[in-house]
Design a protein around this nucleic acid. Structure first.
Lengths: 343, 343
DNA sequence: CTGTTAGCGCATTCAT
DNA sequence: ATGAATGCGCTAACAG
């Protein structure tokens, strides 16, 4: 008596007058099944609101129809959320589910890497943008699970990454084009476990652009903020300099926005007194008019999902290392070099 | 030959010199297994980096160790992200996985409700904060899956919700306490499928507070913005009034922040010319100094996860309807009634 | 306390 | 083109 509840393939088979095997084949679109049978099975399945049990199907097939994403920061974060959105969309097209794994602090991180709960529970894992220790990386590689790194490159592992160096280079070039020469680069803490890699590469891009323009070391001002909320640190640093930069390229929009607010409070306005360009194109950058080096996170997520699906299917990706270009978006916080009198 | 790869319970059993059943029991901490056996099994499991196959375990137990969250908006959203963070944390404590289902537009919504892919693939589903049509609700209830509604109340379904009415009431009371009488309430579009319910209740709270204070209809100004980004609409509305309100209570922080920017651009400053209070305590409210009615999203998510776990375990929750209180957070955008001369 | 047996729901042989 | 049989890895009786 197949009630509305919990229809299984057996129920569908009974009602369609075929065997379970045929139902299985029909629903997977096997060419071995006649068109009419397939249609009948589909109709019955629909009527019963049949939904496949991924547990059973996965057990039998050895593939679970599920991809995991390992995130190193809170999900509430702009970056995490954006990546998840894009990954979700791509996976949905392939009818693959998304399961989240978070490692936002030492405890979660430890739990994840010692227990490796992804093992045998996803077909592939996307490791999103956080720096792994050598031990963690080894552990991850030892589990024989297809891996995709996002914003992190490791030899032999498929990855998708932003071109941090080129992005920053372009951003700084833009500042140089506006006439700035004495330029500061603000990076967020070097010991924060999350985004060290990108940060280092962005500094590299900064120097590249300055090199190109023939700007000497004396006009390159490197600042470090302890965390992305420390806008006040940036403001104080600028305020305390006898010869402050006329433009600032900042590590992330998050920090840039906080810096803008803090700078405003000490009477320094952008771009009147100081040009500011961020990195990311954070959801709130638009609202605040922040010029920025846009990181197309959706492209990143989509590409990562694509790779994960390919690997999960046991295929070899054609382009296992995707480099995603950035784009400079000029809004209201960048402008020409201020005339240094009013202060 | 148990390689490092893919250790199963059979491998553990062999190496520990016991049966698979014993391994299963030992790993689940059954009191039926002797302490030494349990220890030995645990040691071997650890050595082999054994991770259980949820597919197999779920199939055998009838419980999958997985909870789904259905989200009606992009995951990148402050609300979605915050809820997911809290839900994730609670589920992780119970060693339950989190799978995401998104229904951010008509297409995804349709796909979800016609196919109901959650069916037989999660132990419980948390439906986060979006208004369902009657048909959708019926469909959902027909699948015999434990359900938890978040910020939505339906008779007979366990739920966790913010006290929108009381929250807004408190917020408006605060404005009244500052001396304001002519107060505007800005709500976001009524036809947006997402958050209709909360919006209506928030209007209710506004009227309650005004009633209490004996403020007449003529001093209650209701505004509607088409979407949360339409801060300019708000600014224009205020600007165009001959007798504008001295304070604004806004539906959401998102809209309030956009309104602040737009108001600023037309020369209206908060709280000098106009007090503004938002709703949510969005991640960026703090940075912008926005006073707001804080919605403890983490509490919401934790409570929802708790309910989901209880229901998934087949138990009956003690308090199936949780009402979460809000809290007024005063920052920089609220102040006394301006002296109406300078304009 | 532990092992043996059966079965969860589906996909894949192998028959026919 | 379809059905019957077997097994995926685990858990839950049932024995002992």
């Amino acid at each position: 008596m197949p009630t509305d509840n919990h229809a299984s393939m057996a129920d569908v088979a009974r009602l369609a007058g075929v065997s379970v095997a045929t139902v299985s084949r029909a629903l997977r679109g096997s060419p071995l099944v006649s068109a009419e049978t397939t249609a009948r099975v589909a109709a019955v399945a629909e009527e019963l609101s049949f939904a496949i049990s991924r547990a059973a199907s996965g057990l039998a097939r050895g593939r679970l129809g599920r991809v995991g994403v390992l995130i190193g920061s809170p999900l509430q974060t702009w970056f995490s959320g954006s990546v998840l959105d894009a990954v979700y969309a791509r996976l949905a097209l392939a009818d693959v589910e998304l399961t989240i794994f978070r490692a936002q602090d030492a405890a979660e991180r430890d739990a994840f890497f010692t227990r490796l709960p992804v093992r045998r529970n996803v077909d592939a894992l996307i490791v999103a943008s956080f720096a792994l220790t050598a031990a963690e990386r080894n552990r991850l590689h030892s589990i024989g699970l297809p891996l995709v790194y996002l914003n992190q490159r490791v030899a032999g592992v498929p990855s998708v990454a932003i071109d941090d160096v080129d992005g920053t280079r372009q951003g700084v070039r833009t500042l140089l084009g506006l006439g700035h020469r004495r330029i500061g680069f603000v990076q967020t803490d070097l010991h924060r476990p999350g985004f060290v890699f990108s940060s280092a590469r962005r500094v590299q891009g900064f120097h590249d652009a300055m090199d190109e323009a023939g700007v000497g070391e004396e006009d390159r001002i490197l600042l470090v903020a302890p965390h992305p909320q420390a806008g006040d640190v940036v403001a104080q640093a600028v305020l305390s300099m006898t010869d402050p930069p006329t433009a600032l390229a900042v590590d992330s929009d998050d920090l840039a926005l906080n810096a803008l607010v803090a700078l405003d409070q000490v009477g320094i306005r952008a771009p009147r007194d100081l040009s500011v360009i961020g990195f990311d194109d954070h959801a709130h950058a638009g609202r605040m008019g922040l010029s920025t080096i846009a990181q197309p996170v959706d492209v990143l997520g989509t590409a990562a999902a694509e790779l994960a699906l390919t690997l999960a299917a046991g295929e070899v990706p054609e382009h296992p290392d995707v480099l995603v270009p950035t784009r400079v978006v000029l809004r209201l916080t960048t402008g020409p070099v201020p005339v240094r009198e009013p202060r």
